[in-house]
Design a protein around this nucleic acid. Structure first.
Lengths: 250, 250
DNA sequence: GCGATTGAACAACAGTGATGTGCGAAACTC
DNA sequence: GAGTTTCGCACATCACTGTTGTTCAATCGC
């Protein structure tokens, strides 16, 4: 685990912590801790005060992109590989924001497909490709995440029809369907789903036990879910298969 | 001058050149030349054949972004500084593609302004800013340049009204007005100009003696031109002042 | 006012990217 | 089809960038 993540979690759990304590915890010098706190403050993770920092992470929100990106990389790569395999050459794909979808973007780099990514991270991953037809949606990038939102994003999606939507959500269950932490994100995802013929959700197992604030779409609007480990109840039922969703384990 | 640029110019001037000749010219090893030719071929600058490469640069087109970016940096910085000074806090700005406008983007990073850049390079320069309200237009990024074009870009621009448009064109003269090398680009620039109350052209002196293929707008549609050196005729007339354009020398 | 904290400057260090060399494989020439 | 040239991969080397730690003067809070 990176030191940045370690600090962010320690501060979140304690509410607030001093520089000296964090230095002792991580084994780094106080100067390094100060520099780390500076970048975390710039990301909005915490707030500096003289001698330490207090957490700004709310329970309902998710940790910022930079801290999630190198987390669970194996599972994400495996999920992304399966998703990329489900996409045929020549298809047009709308690709959601999030770290799992970013891995999918990387795998599509040398494929002959048309892609509209909903985050600038994926746009950058694909902008050097000569085989991908890249379409950038408009919108306001959310800080850190760089997910494009707002009326311009919705208008871009509504103007087009895609073969496949790859959605990476914050929560998924048979009961509550797809959910997201951010309201703006939720409406972008909803619009993306509506403009695609086929919908694939790329979801690591931790999301299957979680429900986030904003409702995106019912589970029945998904055609397939790709995940790394299926969560089943006592009867061996994942709840999704019954809703007509093909569940693929990577 | 970078070796890449040196190679690209040598091949352009000779039409085609061998690897050994380029190695002798640049003083680098043949292996290095091969690697360079590979990246230039990927950029569409030239075409490899066994033993050498031939130029693909047409007279009517401009050299790719990567080769222009570290060229004339001083003049671009000075022009950009003046342009940034003409923009007031709180303004909304549409920022054209090109290397000069990218410098403007960098100077706007810590300002309180709303910016819609027309190239992904400038988007990336601004996406880490917390003070800038960043708006991304939709569109298809042109390879290398990463300028956003096409119907999505036009729609994004038409949906908004800006205080100021900063335009970096390929050619400018009192007689032919603003001109651009690319037809798609030209219509994006034209739309940007139409959706802004005030139009500033950021143009280094080399563009003032050049006219490109596609007409963008007459010189009279500009409010100000910022350049590094004014070109005047025998009577000391730059031709633009007479058209009601304020010419500022950086 | 005093002590703790901070941020800037400098040095050491590791990680990354660029370059050159050697060699086997592929391609072109005759 | 044989010989020669060219190519690209693998590895070693090198410079450079970014990270970390140390020191010290300035600053902040009590």
């Amino acid at each position: 685990m990176s030191r940045l993540k370690q600090i962010s979690e320690a501060v979140r759990d304690a509410g607030s912590l001093g520089v000296a304590e964090l230095a002792a915890l991580t084994g780094a010098s106080e100067m390094t801790i100060r520099r780390d706190l500076e970048v975390l403050a710039a990301q909005g993770v915490l707030e500096r005060y003289r001698g330490g920092a207090r957490s700004l992470l709310l329970r309902g929100s998710e940790p910022p992109f930079a801290l999630r990106s190198d987390e669970n990389t194996d599972a994400k790569r495996r999920i992304a590989a399966v998703v990329a395999g489900l996409i045929a050459d020549g298809e047009s794909v709308v690709l959601d924001s999030g770290t799992t979808c970013l891995e999918v973007a990387r795998l599509l780099h040398d494929r002959r497909v048309t892609v509209m990514p909903l985050s600038l991270h994926s746009v950058n991953a694909l902008s050097s490709s000569s085989s991908v037809t890249l379409l950038v949606p408009g919108g306001r990038p959310r800080p850190g995440e760089l997910a494009l939102t707002g009326p311009l994003a919705l208008a871009s999606l509504q103007a087009l029809r895609f073969d496949t939507a790859v959605i990476g959500c914050c929560g998924l269950s048979a009961e509550h369907g797809l959910t997201a932490f951010d309201l703006e994100d939720a409406s972008v995802k909803r619009t993306a789903i509506a403009s695609a013929r086929r919908v694939i959700a790329a979801v690591d197992a931790s999301k299957l036990t979680r429900t986030a604030l904003a409702h995106v779409a019912p589970a029945s609007s998904l055609d397939a879910v790709v995940t790394d480990a299926v969560v089943t109840d006592a009867a061996g039922d994942d709840g999704l298969t019954a809703a007509g969703v093909a569940v693929v384990t990577a």
